[in-house]
């Protein structure tokens, strides 16, 4: 069955450069610099990327950053905790809007 997502498409990512090579170069340079070790280690950055990949629900990024996290020395325990962080923020973001619901409720109700 055809789907919008094909794992093989991930390796074609660089082909996006064809439409705008200069922008792609800027993106690639910036991307490389972002993930280089700095105040955070490469492993910590890979785990953040993995968590964000789940928050934005990007299958390509989940595949890529699971592999990257493993390669940078993370284990299943660390990757699972990172995903829980993303999930907690997503869940919390919904729940905290309950304050708006309460505000409206308070205003309208007797």
């Amino acid at each position: 069955m055809e789907t919008y997502y094909d794992p093989k498409d991930l390796s074609k990512f660089a082909e996006i450069s064809e439409g705008a090579p200069e922008l792609w170069k800027k993106f690639s340079d910036w991307y490389g610099a972002v993930f280089a070790a700095g105040a955070l280690t490469e492993r910590e950055k890979a785990l953040i990327a993995l968590a964000v990949a789940h928050a934005v629900q990007c299958p390509y990024c989940i595949d890529a950053y699971t592999q990257e996290s493993l390669a940078k020395g993370a284990d299943l325990e660390q990757m699972t905790e990172a995903i829980h962080v993303a999930s907690a923020i997503r869940g919390g973001a919904s729940l905290v809007h309950g304050v708006q619901m309460k505000n409206v409720n308070t205003k309208l109700s007797m």
Binding site: A37, T41, E42, R43, Q67, E68, L70, A71, K72, G73
Partner: peptide, 8 residues
Amino acid sequence: FLPGSQSE
């Protein structure tokens, strides 16, 4: 998978 950066 391949190993990550040796120094890191």
